[in-house]
């Protein structure tokens, strides 16, 4: 079996007393999109920075293309940081030219509308900026794409277009490691790694993560009262429209908690977001 494009084994990172990443292991194979999920502060960005060689590990091992991060491995990586890493005072084409000159790759295709753009990147809408960052990261045809919340702050249409770009890259054999907190994006990934408090709390395909998990769905005319009653019983109901969805409790338990109230309780498959909340709230003890 070939080496994974990116791998980390038992990687730990401390900042003083704070344990940011705790014995995390993951791997990204060619043609695979791996989604790294977690709340803010879960350790996703720290993990990416260690993978890229931007941050030394406190313990553990990081490998890119079978070797430690180095200038050689950088040639094969495309990176989109949270802040995009574009020069605000240069046009999209000038940004791309700089990147291609550094990577010594032929001038790749920039979407026509971006290539014609004469305004500096800093004066373009965020969605356009993100498209430029994607084009720049892909221009040298990297074997591994690492993206840190790449679609944050853009509308659904631009997000869909960016994901088309990622899917094309992975179809072409590139491995993709992407952090996100958008559940609809996570569903686009081939495999998910969920982090909480610096640790991996769940990992696998979407179906593995959901593993037939179901939620109790409550329809009640007096939904505020039902919500209060469920919370008083220590349950974690979520309000969707005027429907309450309760993760981690069976319909029988919910019916019992709402005894005497006018309501109907049924069961439905859990969404990824619900499963994520469940895993993250259970934390390390709930790791699969």
């Amino acid at each position: 079996m070939t080496d994974p494009l990116a791998a980390c084994r038992d990687v730990t990172r401390r900042f003083g007393d704070h344990l940011a990443v705790d014995r995390v292991s993951l791997a990204v194979q060619p043609g695979e999109i791996v989604g790294l999920l977690g709340a803010n502060g879960a350790g996703k960005t720290t993990l990416l920075r260690m993978l890229l060689g931007l941050l030394p590990v406190t313990a553990g091992e990081v490998r890119l293309f079978g070797e430690p991060p180095s200038r050689t491995t950088r040639r094969r990586i495309g990176y989109v940081p949270q802040g995009l890493g574009l020069y605000d005072d240069l046009t999209p084409l000038e940004n791309l030219r700089f990147s291609q000159a550094v990577f010594r790759s032929p001038l790749g295709a920039l979407p026509a509308d971006l290539a014609r753009e004469t305004l500096p990147v800093g004066r373009l809408p965020l969605g356009t900026q993100r498209r430029v960052a994607f084009a720049q990261a892909l221009a040298h045809r990297p074997d591994l794409l690492i993206l840190d919340e790449p679609t944050s702050g853009v509308g659904p249409l631009v997000r869909a277009r960016l994901w088309d770009v990622l899917r094309d890259a992975s179809d072409g054999g590139a491995g993709v490691l992407v952090t996100t907190h958008y559940m609809e994006e996570a569903e686009e990934c081939d495999r998910l790694v969920i982090m909480a408090d610096g640790r991996v709390v769940a990992e696998g395909k979407l179906s593995d993560i959901l593993r037939g998990e179901r939620v109790a769905v409550v329809d009640a005319p007096d939904w505020p009262g039902a919500l209060t009653a469920l919370e008083e019983k220590g349950m974690t109901p979520a309000l969707v429209g005027r429907t309450l969805r309760v993760v981690g409790s069976s319909p029988a338990e919910v019916e019992q908690a709402l005894a005497g109230r006018e309501c109907t309780v049924r069961e439905a498959p859990a969404t990824l977001e619900e499963r994520f909340v469940q895993i993250a709230s259970v934390g390390v003890s709930g790791a699969s």
Partner: peptide, 16 residues
Amino acid sequence: LSPSPLRARRAGARSL
């Protein structure tokens, strides 16, 4: 610009 590879390698060697 290249803060970690050497230290990462050392840390990696320790862990292995």
